[in-house]
Design a protein around this nucleic acid. Structure first.
Lengths: 224, 224
DNA sequence: TCAAAAGTGTTTGTGGTACACCCATGG
DNA sequence: CCATGGGTGTACCACAAACACTTTTGA
């Protein structure tokens, strides 16, 4: 018997791709699947939707179950390919989550069952999760270019060099230091603090994301 | 009793926002709801998902049921607000569809039950359909700026003036004729034909979308 | 020959990109 | 005093925006 109920409604889950910065790398949270059909394979966190709550609440609860807090959440897409789950028809509503390294400690299980994985060195994933993760990564890279979501990967106070590294790690390409600093400052979305941070060398000024800063900018029009 | 089945899976539908150009205006296909809870109100076409098929197939079948053919389809988002349907938990996977005016004749019912409506003069809509339609419109406007989807609203051969009008109607703002023509031609996505069209005045050259033209361009980076 | 729409270039400003050196601190 | 990372300005180029007149056709 399949996963589908007698009434004909297919199974519906919320699946969350959570990213964080860790070890100078962009990493995704994966768990080891405990049940068939993918027992033992790594998978993105997933759960049946919660009654009487918005879908986003389910996503938030999933991540809170793994110790993350104060995450950025954004719905990606519904994945409903007929063959994505061998147990029967299953629709997954996928979410993108960004968490800061400080709230990023997996606490919901044995470390061998819940781990951050570099997106550049992923294990084989269950079902169509590789596709979902890839979709999430694409979306993150795109939004980095015209929104301020990138700062949701950083701690509340951050240096410009940290910020640049974050952009470089997510985009996978190096950026010019002076141009980066000029544009990020001219955008007016971050403000100076009086504190300084940094490990070696000259201490760096710490910045903070301004409260009114969740702007989106217009993309340049190719087609006018 | 609610709409939800005994197994706990909520109802899941595919809802389609179909746009076309008609009467020098951007119009959306609406149907009059035949059943509670919104009987008599206008609604966007919707259906339960088809077994064993990708979600997109359901969307395509819905529109074919109303006489449309060869539509552009793109998934928008899943709408799963707990209170969106008073009958019980219902998740809608929304699609954006673009059809050409020639294939845009509603044929699936009485004209008083299936109609194109100007997006600038919509009636009150069922459930959260106004929100879904608005989301679709935003997405269309955004994608117009960095993809070639706009041409899916036009017939296979079109004049540059028609194209400009299409952009203007969708975006809701006037565009400069010379800049528009230069950029659309320089983008290299359309090719000349030898035919000419147009109603009054000097006949205009007809163009055709090139086969290799479904490009996307990079958005301008605000954050470098 | 007139009405109606098609078609065509140039100038000016803004914003993107490339690029190299001095500064402050801790060890 | 030296190693490490922090911080700064300019010159060039490409693209966006503004703008008005001539051409072709059908009635």
């Amino acid at each position: 018997m399949g996963r589908q109920s007698g009434s004909g409604h297919p199974a519906i889950t919320v699946d969350v791709v959570a990213f964080t910065l860790l070890e100078d790398d962009l990493q995704a949270l994966l768990i080891r699947s405990q049940a068939p059909p993918s027992k033992g394979r790594w998978a993105i966190p997933s759960a049946r939707i919660r009654d009487g709550e918005p879908l986003e609440t389910t996503a938030r609860c999933i991540l809170e179950g793994y110790g993350a807090q104060d995450m950025y959440l954004e719905q990606l897409c519904a994945f409903g390919n007929a063959w994505r789950d061998p147990r029967g028809r299953a629709v997954a509503v996928a979410y993108l989550a960004l968490v800061t390294a400080t709230s990023a400690t997996p606490a919901g299980g044995d470390a061998s069952d819940v781990r951050w994985w570099s997106i550049y060195k992923l294990p084989p994933l269950a079902l169509d999760h590789a596709q979902i993760l890839d979709f999430a990564l694409q979306r993150l890279r795109n939004k980095l270019e015209y929104t301020a979501v990138g700062f949701r990967l950083l701690p509340p106070a951050f240096t410009l060099t940290e910020t640049q590294r974050a952009y470089e790690v997510v985009l996978g390409s190096p950026l010019d230091k002076r141009n980066f600093r000029r544009r990020i400052l001219e955008a007016g979305i971050i403000g100076e603090t009086r504190q300084r941070g940094g490990s070696r060398g000259r201490p760096a000024r710490l910045y903070r994301l301004r409260d009114d800063a969740m702007i989106e900018t217009k993309a340049r029009r190719l087609f006018p």
